[in-house]
């Protein structure tokens, strides 16, 4: 479905199923950008690396790594060093995201200036 979308100026943000299954089944060049979300844990980084490899092999556009739930410099470094060849955007651990999730609302509607919201917002220009 994603690959059959007409090329318009519409921005399509596709939230895929966890893991790399969907990415493996996607036709080549189905997207212009792949965002790989990783937490600063070895298991999450490992999945991220696999996703990067599949996305590269299958030419799924530019790859950007999002280091999410980053609590400190050490967390940030853990992700950056694992993905040294890629652009890495850091999104901090943010109580607003946790609160939004518990309430079932968007973080944007709790606080559009929250640190995590602001960090994700920077992707607009980066992908732009």
């Amino acid at each position: 479905m994603l690959s059959s979308v007409p090329h318009t100026d519409t921005v399509i943000v596709a939230d895929l199923e966890a893991g790399i299954g969907t990415l493996t089944r996607l036709p080549e060049q189905a997207v212009e950008h792949t965002l790989v979300i990783v937490e600063p844990t070895p298991r999450s980084i490992d999945v991220g690396k696999r996703a990067v490899q599949v996305a590269t092999e299958r030419a799924q556009g530019n790859i950007t790594v999002v280091a999410n739930k980053v609590a400190d410099d050490e967390d940030n470094e853990r992700v950056r060093s694992a993905f040294a060849e890629f652009k890495v955007v850091t999104v901090p651990t943010d109580p607003v995201v946790i609160k939004a999730d518990r309430q079932g609302v968007s973080p944007v509607d709790i606080d559009a200036e929250a640190p995590a919201v602001a960090a994700i917002g920077k992707l607009v220009n980066l992908l732009g």
Binding site: V13, A14, L16, I37, V38, G48, A55, N68, K69
Partner: peptide, 25 residues
């Protein structure tokens, strides 16, 4: 432009996707 968001379960794919879509809008 099409953006695919991938990662481990619970890594924050949906939170990032939702906020990113709203930010683009």
């Amino acid at each position: 432009m099409r953006v695919a968001v991938v990662g481990k379960g619970g890594s924050g794919k949906t939170s990032v996707s939702g906020v990113l879509a709203r930010s683009f809008a």
